[in-house]
Design a protein around this nucleic acid. Structure first.
Length: 933
DNA sequence: AAATTCACG
DNA sequence: GACGTACGTGAATTTC
C-alpha cells in the first residue's frame, strides 16, 4: 500500500531504545558463552510490547526503527566539539549494537540508518514526507530534541511512561510551541550534546525571551532592547555562538533518503525468522512468550555448552585459516570498502607491519584488517624492490600501492572512531607506530592482555603460541618472510603477495582469538582485571614510552672512559696475581685459575661441570685471597660499563635525544611490568659507584625530575593480608618496621636497638615475603643454618598469622592451581603439585605472588588515574620502577605535582580495596635521577 | 641457544 | 635421608 491520506507512520528511536534497555536492566550474559546480551533482551522486550500494544484502532500502517550511524555527522563539521564530552560507549554494550539491528529485522520491522546522519534527522525527514502525503505520524521516543517535530498531525509517545506528547506537552516542557523549540534550545544550549548556547541562559529564561521577541532572529537583532545588562551583553557578544547552536539543534528534514515511505509498510511477523534469532540469543522466557502470542511451538534451547566451546553455538564453525584467500588492497575504492565493512560491524582487527621491532624508529610498511574470521586484507604501503638499493640504501616504492598519506587519511577516522572497536594483539606496539603518523587508535581491545588476564602463569601470550593453543593453527613464521641472521631483510623488501598472506593472517588470527576470548573473560571472571588493570594501561604506557627520558651522553661517555682505565688497571693486577694472562670476563677461565692453578678449595657445579664463580662465592674467598676481591671489583665496573654507560648511549634516540624504553604489560606472571630495550627498571642505585649513573638521567631545561615511591608497600600488604595486628599497628603508628620486628623477636627495647640487630630483622622481613627458608636466610645473613632456622621459628611464634597465611595460600594454590591478588588478578601455579625441589619453588612463588601482585595492581591503578589527575600541570609521567613513578615537571610546579601524585598513589587501592594499613609515598626532586630518588 | 653473572624492586 | 633452596625481572658476555 502506498503511503497517503489516512496512513499512520510510527517512527521508533532505536538508539534511545537500546540505551534505555541497557541501563534499565541488570547485566545479562548469554549462558553458552557469556556474550553480554542484556540490552538486546530489553530491546526485544520493548519491541514485543510495542507490537502487542498495536491492536487498537490507532494501529500504524507503516513503521520503522531508525538508528544512528557513524559518530561523525555534518554537525561535527559545523562544530568540532559537538557531542565531544559524550562518554565512550560501555564495553558491554558495544557488541550488542549490531545485534539490535538483527533483532529489528527478525521482528520483520523496517530498520533504517544512514552513514553520517543522526536518527533524529532521518525521523525529521520522514515525518515531513508523511505529513505532506496527508498521513499522521507518531514518534516513539522521549528525546526532547525531537520535540521540534511535534505539531499538526505529529505527536510523540514516551514508550517507557506510555505518555503522549502533543503540542500542549511541548509547550509545557519548553514554554514555547514546537516551532520555537529550536530557538529555546539554541539559547539554552545542551550539556549532554555539548551545544554551547548562551552562557547563563537556561530553558526558562530562553522561553521568556523568545515569547517576548517572537523569534530568535528578532531577539538577536533587537538585543539592545533587553533590559538586563548582563543578559543583553551575552546576547550581543555571543551572537555567533548562539547562531551556531541553532544550526546544531535544528534537525535536517530535507535529507535525501535511499528509501521511501512505501517501503515502511507494516509487515506480518515471520515466525521462523524471529524464533531463529531468539533461540540463538538463548532468550528462554521471551522465546516462549512470543511463541505463545504467535500461536506456535517454542523451539528448544540447548541448556549449556561445554567449556571452551565455540561462542556461536548456532553459527557454523569459522572457516579454516586460508592465507591464499586474503585480499591485497591496492586502491582507494577497495580500502574504502573495507573501512565501510569495519564501520558496519562496529569492530575490526588491526595490525601493522613495520621495518623493525622498535616502535620509535621503525617505519610503517603496511596494515592489515580483519572484519570476520577468514575475511581479512593487507594494505601494502611502502614495499620496495628487494635488494635494488641505490647509494643511500633505499629504492623506489613498488607499483600498485596506495600512497601512504592517502591511505592514512582514510584510515584515521576509522581508527579514531569511538564507535568502532579496534582489536589487536599487543596493541601498544601498533598504537605507538600509528601515533608517530598522527593517528591515535581508540577504543581498543587486546588479545594478548585478555590471555594474560585469564592465563598468567600457564603459558606465554604471544600470537603464535595463542594461535597454536586456542585455534590449533600454526601461523606463518616471520622467518619465512624476512629470513634470519646475517641474511635478514626488512619487511618492506618482502614481496607484496607473500606479505599479504603473512600480514592478513595475523589480523585474521587476532580476530578469531578475540571472538574466543571475549566471552571467556566473563566466564572466568577476570573482566574487571582486564578492563580495569590491563587495557587502560595501554594508552598510559604509550604516552610514557613516547615521552622517554633525557639522557646526557657526555656524562655517560666520561664515566665510560674512567671505567675503562680502572678496568685495565685491575686486569693487570689480576693477571699478576694469577701469574698468567687470561680473560677475566670468562667464569670458566677464572674458575680454572682459582681452583685448579691456585688450588683453592671449591667445588664444581651444575651439569656443565664448570666451577661456580658467582659473587657470593668470590666474596667468601676474598677473606683469604686477594685475587677474588679484584675480580669482584672488575666485574662491578665491567657491568656498569657494558650494560649502562656504553649500551645506554646506543639507546639515545637521535630525533628526540631521549631514551625510550618499552614496557611489557604481560611479561611478568605476577602483574608487574617489565621494561626492556633498554631496561630502565634496573639502573644501578645500591652501590655508590653505580648510583652515579643516575646522574646521566636528567630533566629538560627549566624542569626537574620528581620521584615518588611507595614505602614498604609489600610488607604493608603482607600485614594486611595475613592480618598481623602487631605489624598493622606499627605501620599505623609510622614506626620503623624493621626495628619493631627486631624488638619483638629479640626482646630488645627500641631505644637499645643496634644497626646489626635491625639489619637481621630486615632480612627476615624480606625473607617472609619471598617464602622464607632457613637455608636462604642463612646464606643471606652469612650465619649458620641452624641459627637462621631459629630466627624463623621465633618469627612465626611472634607473628603466628604469617604461618597461617602461608599455609592457607599454599592450600588455596593446591586446590585451585592458582592464587589471586586482592584485586582479583589470577596467577596460575601449575607446578604447585610437583614433587622434589620444584615443589618448594612453586610454593614460595605461590606465597609471594599475591603480595607482589597486589602491589603491582596498586601502582597500576595509580598510573591509570594519573594522566587525568595531572592534566592541569606542566608535567609528564616518564618511568615506572615497580614501586616508584618518575615524572618530569616545570620547576615551579614540582611541589604541586608531588601533592597531587602522592594523593593518587596513596589512595590507589581505593575504593575497591580498603587496606588496614596506610600507604605512604616518599617524594624527592632534582635536576637528575640521583638527586630525585 | 644456553649458561653465567649481575643490575633493579 | 637426600634433594635444592628467597620472589620477580632484562641484558651483556662467554661458551657450546
Amino acid at each position: 500500500m502506498a503511503f497517503g491520506k489516512g496512513c499512520h507512520l510510527h517512527l521508533i528511536d532505536g538508539s534511545a531504545y537500546i540505551f534505555r534497555a541497557f541501563h534499565a536492566l541488570p547485566p545479562l550474559t548469554r549462558k553458552s558463552d557469556g556474550l553480554p546480551i542484556g540490552a538486546v533482551s530489553g530491546f526485544c522486550n520493548m519491541l514485543q510490547r510495542y507490537i502487542d500494544g498495536n491492536n487498537g484502532s490507532d494501529a500504524p500502517t507503516h513503521v520503522a526503527v531508525i538508528f544512528d550511524k557513524g559518530s561523525h555527522t555534518f554537525r561535527n563539521d559545523l562544530y568540532d566539539l559537538y557531542k565531544a564530552n559524550r562518554e565512550a560507549m560501555p564495553e558491554d554494550l558495544r557488541p550488542q549494537i549490531p545485534l539490535t539491528r538483527e533483532a529489528t529485522r527478525a521482528f520483520n520491522i523496517a530498520c533504517e540508518e544512514i552513514e553520517g546522519f543522526e536518527a533524529d534527522d532521518i525521523m525529521a525527514t520522514l515525518a515531513r514526507q508523511a505529513r505532506e502525503a496527508g498521513g499522521r505520524v507518531t514518534i516513539l521516543s522521549s528525546d526532547k530534541d525531537l520535540m521540534q517535530l511535534v505539531g499538526d498531525g505529529v505527536d510523540m509517545l514516551d514508550p517507557m511512561k506510555n505518555k503522549r506528547i502533543d503540542r500542549e506537552g511541548v509547550i509545557e516542557k519548553f514554554g514555547v510551541p514546537p516551532e520555537r523549540v529550536v530557538d529555546v534550545q539554541a539559547l539554552a544550549g545542551d550539556s549532554v550534546d555539548n551545544v554551547p548556547g548562551a552562557p547563563g541562559i537556561g530553558i526558562k529564561t530562553a522561553a521568556l525571551l523568545i515569547n517576548e521577541f517572537g523569534s530568535l532572529e528578532d531577539l538577536l537583532d533587537r538585543a539592545e532592547e533587553v533590559p538586563q545588562p548582563k543578559r543583553r551583553q551575552t546576547l550581543i557578544e555571543m551572537r555567533e555562538q548562539i547562531e551556531l547552536s541553532k544550526k546544531l539543534v535544528q534537525l535536517d528534514d530535507r535529507m535525501a533518503l535511499p528509501f521511501s515511505l512505501d517501503d515502511l509498510e507494516v509487515r506480518p511477523p515471520e515466525p521462523e525468522k524471529l524464533m531463529a534469532f531468539l533461540t540463538q540469543m538463548e532468550f528462554r522466557t521471551l522465546t516462549r512468550r512470543i511463541a505463545e502470542s504467535l500461536g506456535i511451538e517454542a523451539p528448544a534451547i540447548p541448556d549449556t555448552t561445554p567449556e571452551g566451546a565455540n561462542p556461536d553455538t548456532d553459527a557454523p564453525p569459522p572457516p579454516p585459516v586460508a592465507p591464499e584467500a586474503y585480499e591485497c588492497v591496492r586502491d582507494m575504492v577497495a580500502l574504502e570498502r573495507w573501512i565501510a565493512q569495519a564501520r558496519d560491524r562496529g569492530w575490526v582487527a588491526f595490525d601493522t607491519e613495520t621495518t623493525g621491532l622498535n616502535e620509535m624508529t621503525c617505519d610503517l610498511v603496511g596494515v592489515s584488517l580483519c572484519v570476520e574470521a577468514g575475511t581479512a586484507c593487507y594494505v601494502p604501503l611502502a614495499h620496495r624492490a628487494p635488494g635494488a638499493d641505490d647509494l643511500f640504501g633505499s629504492s623506489e616504492l613498488l607499483e600498485g600501492q596506495i600512497p601512504m598519506d592517502r591511505a592514512l587519511a582514510a584510515l584515521k577516522p576509522l581508527l579514531e572512531d569511538p564507535a568502532v572497536l579496534k582489536i589487536g594483539q599487543n596493541m601498544k606496539y601498533d598504537a605507538k607506530v600509528m601515533a608517530r603518523y598522527g593517528i591515535r587508535i581508540a577504543p581498543i581491545d587486546d588479545t594478548m592482555l585478555m590471555s594474560y588476564a585469564m592465563n598468567a602463569g600457564l603459558h606465554g601470550h604471544g600470537m603464535d603460541a595463542l594461535s597454536e593453543r586456542y585455534l590449533s593453527h600454526t601461523t606463518i613464521p616471520i622467518k619465512d618472510m624476512i629470513g634470519s641472521g646475517k641474511a635478514q631483510i626488512t619487511f618492506d623488501r618482502v614481496g607484496i603477495e607473500e606479505a599479504t598472506k603473512y600480514a592478513a593472517e595475523d589480523a585474521d588470527v587476532t580476530l578469531r582469538l578475540w571472538q574466543s576470548f571475549k566471552p571467556q573473560l566473563h566466564r572466568v571472571q577476570v573482566t574487571r582485571v582486564y578492563e580495569g588493570l590491563e587495557r587502560p594501561l595501554v594508552p598510559v604506557l604509550t604516552e610514557m614510552e613516547m615521552a622517554g627520558i633525557k639522557v646526557d651522553r657526555n656524562v655517560l661517555s666520561r664515566m665510560s672512559g674512567a671505567f675503562a682505565q680502572k678496568m685495565a688497571q685491575l686486569e693487570e693486577e689480576i693477571h699478576q696475581l694469577a701469574g698468567e694472562a687470561f680473560n677475566v670476563g670468562s667464569p670458566k677461565q677464572l674458575g680454572e685459575i682459582l681452583f685448579d692453578k691456585m688450588g683453592i678449595e671449591g667445588g664444581k657445579k651444575g651439569k656443565t661441570g664448570a666451577y661456580a664463580t658467582g659473587a657470593d662465592i668470590l666474596e667468601d674467598l676474598a677473606t683469604e685471597h686477594e685475587l677474588p676481591r679484584r675480580v669482584l671489583d672488575w666485574r662491578q665496573i665491567s657491568k656498569l660499563k657494558s650494560t649502562y654507560t656504553d649500551a645506554l648511549q646506543d639507546h639515545i634516540n637521535p630525533d628526540t635525544g631521549r631514551v625510550h624504553t618499552s614496557y611489557l604489560i604481560a611479561g611478568a606472571n605476577t602483574g608487574r611490568l617489565a621494561s626492556n630495550d633498554p631496561n630502565l627498571q634496573n639502573i644501578p642505585v645500591r652501590s655508590e659507584e653505580g648510583r652515579r649513573i643516575r646522574e646521566a638521567f636528567v630533566a629538560d631545561e627549566g624542569k626537574v625530575l620528581v620521584s615518588l615511591d611507595y614505602s614498604q608497600i609489600e610488607l604493608r600488604i603482607l600485614a594486611h593480608m595475613a592480618d598481623i595486628p602487631a605489624l598493622k599497628e606499627a605501620f599505623r603508628e609510622g614506626q620503623d618496621i624493621h626495628a619493631m620486628t627486631a624488638s619483638e623477636m629479640f626482646n630488645v627495647p627500641l631505644d637499645q636497638m643496634t644497626p646489626d640487630i635491625r639489619r637481621q630483622a630486615k632480612a627476615i622481613n624480606f625473607g617472609v615475603i619471598y617464602g622464607i627458608s632457613g637455608f636462604g636466610l642463612a646464606r643471606n645473613l652469612r650465619i649458620p643454618r641452624a641459627e637462621a632456622q631459629g630466627f624463623i621459628d621465633r618469627y612465626f611464634e611472634r607473628f603466628p598469622g604469617i604461618r597461617q597465611y602461608m599455609d592457607d595460600t599454599v592450600a588455596f594454590a593446591k586446590e585451585h592451581k592458582r592464587v589471586e591478588t586482592m584485586f582479583g588478578r589470577r596467577i596460575h601455579t601449575p607446578e604447585i603439585g610437583a614433587k622434589g625441589p620444584r615443589a618448594g619453588f612453586a610454593q614460595r612463588a605461590a606465597i609471594n605472588a599475591p603480595i607482589q601482585g597486589t602491589a603491582a595492581d596498586i601502582i597500576r591503578r595509580a598510573m591509570i588515574r594519573m594522566p587525568a589527575a595531572i592534566a592541569g600541570l606542566p608535567a609528564r609521567m616518564l618511568l615506572q620502577v615497580h614501586d616508584e613513578l618518575l615524572f618530569e615537571v616545570d620547576k615551579a610546579a614540582a611541589e604541586d605535582l608531588i601533592g597531587i601524585a602522592r594523593d593518587v598513589m596513596e589512595g590507589a587501592a581505593e575504593p575497591v580495596v580498603k587496606l588496614d594499613v596506610p600507604l605512604i609515598v616518599d617524594a624527592g626532586q632534582g635536576a637528575n635521577w640521583a638527586e630525585a630518588h
